[in-house]
Amino acid sequence: MVMIDICRDSLDGLSVGDALGAQFFVPGTHPDTLPAGEWPWTDDTEMACSVVAAARAGQPLDQDRLAALFGEHFEPYRGYGGGAVVLLRQIREGGDWRVLAPAAFGGQGSMGNGAAMRVAPLGAFHAGDSATAAREALRSAEITHAHPEAILGAVAVAVAAAEAGWARTLRDRPEPADLLDAIGDYLVGSQVRTGVERARRLLGVTVAEAAYELGNGAQVLAQDTVPFALWTAVTYLHDFSAAIFACVEAGGDVDTTGAIVGGIVASYTGRDGIPGEWLARREPLPSYALSAA
């Protein structure tokens, strides 16, 4: 097994979690019934495809090239937030992300969950080297999210995927608490780190309790999304279906929690751990997704 295989599996998991999660924003959809028809993916997957393409092109990650890919493949109807629409349109028109990202939200930069939602395959690409996964996640995040909380959210998810992918190669499922500890080693003092520490203390509670205490992404912030997603991923690391249905049960930003959790869990289970019917119903990934940028 090579790391690009784990990366590809993570992208499949991310896109399936995203696409299925997004179905539960459709009126009339019920958690006990698998949605019919094809499941379109959202901005989570669209941006993750660009991240994977850029990662395959070489290390360290070329931030200018990734910014260009974000602008090139940006389709507003995929569910981007208003701030992202403005930023990506400006990047597409030649704007400098180094100026644009820090200027967002009154000069504090975005602390949204967008950098975290797309990064799991990048972490999986560096399975066995969590330090590099953390550095590359930071580089991928700051193109659009200059706020430390958003950047640390991306770091946490990337390290989780790197650790999960490495555990797969060792055929040794880590204890949930140990995996959260490994993630915490790469986080400085922040709301994201506090949330991860709280997630560790909540291991063993119900999904509803975890979502109540940690958030479910309803605020679309890294600190409101990543701790619950990590709690879910480490709890259900061996069971892709259970992990995604936990996101559905929690409600909130289901496509994003599904994308984060799916990307981490599939790094461990592999593509074979994703139900075949779910893969078949997910909208096909674009051709550039697994080609070097």
Score class of each variant (00 low, 15 high):
Q191P: 01
E93I: 04
V226E: 12
G106F: 13
G58M: 07
V207Q: 06
S130C: 11
T144A: 05
F24C: 09
A233I: 12
G263M: 12
A36D: 08
A177Y: 04
L170G: 00
R171N: 14
R171L: 08
G123H: 07
M117C: 02
A84W: 01
E209A: 10
P40W: 14
V234G: 05
E93Q: 15
L180D: 03
L202S: 13
L202F: 09
Y186M: 07
H126Y: 15
V99N: 11
P27W: 12
V155G: 08
D9Q: 03
G276Q: 15
A101I: 11
E283T: 07
E283C: 04
L122K: 07
M47D: 03
I244W: 09
Y288L: 10
V261S: 10
G195M: 11
V159M: 03
E175K: 06
V86N: 14
A120P: 05
A218I: 10
V26S: 04
A36C: 00
W231F: 13
S140F: 10
S190E: 15
G262R: 06
Q59H: 08
G252N: 09
A242I: 01
R135K: 13
A116P: 05
L87P: 04
V226W: 08
P31E: 15
S10K: 02
V119S: 09
V265L: 11
E46W: 00
G215T: 09
G95K: 06
R198N: 13
L66M: 12
R200F: 03
E213I: 02
I274F: 05
A210F: 06
E163P: 00
Y268C: 00
A233D: 15
V261R: 06
A218V: 10
C49K: 02
A246I: 10
A246V: 09
V159R: 00
E175M: 08
T256K: 02
G95C: 07
R171H: 12
G17A: 12
E197G: 07
N216K: 05
Y186A: 06
I143R: 06
V159S: 06
R98Y: 02
M47F: 02
M117P: 00
G109V: 11
D178Q: 09
L203K: 09
R118G: 03
A115V: 04
V265I: 12
D172N: 08
V159F: 01
V207P: 00
